[in-house]
Amino acid sequence: MMSAAIRIKQVSKCFGSTQALDRVDLEVQQGEFFGLLGPNGAGKTTLISALAGLVRPDAGSLCVMGHDVQGDYRAARRHLGVVPQELVFDPFFTVRESLKIQSGYFGIGDNDDWIDEILENLGLTSKANANMRMLSGGMKRRVLVAQALVHRPPVIVLDEPTAGVDVELRQTLWAFIRRLNEAGHTIVLTTHYLEEAENLCTRIAMLKAGRVVALDTTANLLRRFSVHALRLRTAGAMPLELARDGAENGGWWSFPFDGFDQVEPLLARLRAAGCRIDDLEIGKPDLEEVFVRVMQGPPQGQVN
C-alpha cells in the first residue's frame, strides 16, 4: 500500500498557556498540491515545524512518507524539504557553497548537475558565486527554496514562500514548483495570497486557533461555502425591502444567489423599486470569500 506523503494524527502543542495546535488530524496523499490556510497565529508554522522536527508535539504523531518524524527522524527528514518563512541565510558563504553544504548535511556529495538545474530553474545561475550577503531579499528567498530542494525530497513544504516577493519571482517560483509537482513531488503550501492557493492547490485545509476547521478539495470548498453574487451600484439609496437581502461595501451592493434563474427576478424588483443602476457585475465565488466565511463561522469540530 502506498503510504501517505504526510500523516498527522491527533497532534497537540502548547506554548505556555497558548494552545498552538489542538488535536490536528491531516493526511496529504502523494502527488497532491495541498494548501494550508489560516490567519496569523492559527498554527500553520507550528504544524510545519512539528513536521520538520523543529517543534516537538505534546501529543500525537506525524509521519512523512510513512516515517515517524521522531522515531525515524533520519528517513523522515530525508524525504522532506522545508522552505522556512523567515528570510534566513548564512553570511559566510556563497550561493553555491550554501547549496553544497546543505547537500552534505543530507549525505549527498555528488549532485552538481542537480544544483545547476535548481539554480537555472530559479534564475540564480548568475549569482552562484556571489556571497549570500550581497543578494537582494528576493534572491535570498530563491536560495532558501533551492536549499530545500538539494536532496530531491519527495515532499516539499513551502511556508509563505511568496511573502513580500515581486511578481517575477512569484511566477518563476510557481512555474518551477508546478513542474516539480507534475514530476511527482508532493507540495504543501501556506500562503496569505488566497488567489495563489485557489489557482495552485487541489485540496485545502483551513486552520483556526490550532484546529482544522475546513478540509476539502478547492472545488468543493468553493461550492460549499461560496455563491455567486450580483454586484451593483445604484444612483440613489437602496430601497429598504431590497437592502435586507443584500450587503453594502464601499458603495457596491452585493446580492447573493444560487442559480442564474434568480438574476432576472432580482433585477425586476430593482426596476419596480425605481432604482437606477449605474454599474453592474456578476461576482464569481472565490476562496477569499470562503476563507472569510469559514473564519467567521462558529467554532466547529474537527472536519473530516
Partner: peptide
C-alpha cells in the same frame, strides 16, 4: 534551521 532540518 539549516542544521536542524537535515538528518543530523
Amino acid at each position: 534551521v539549516f542544521v536542524l532540518l537535515p538528518p543530523i
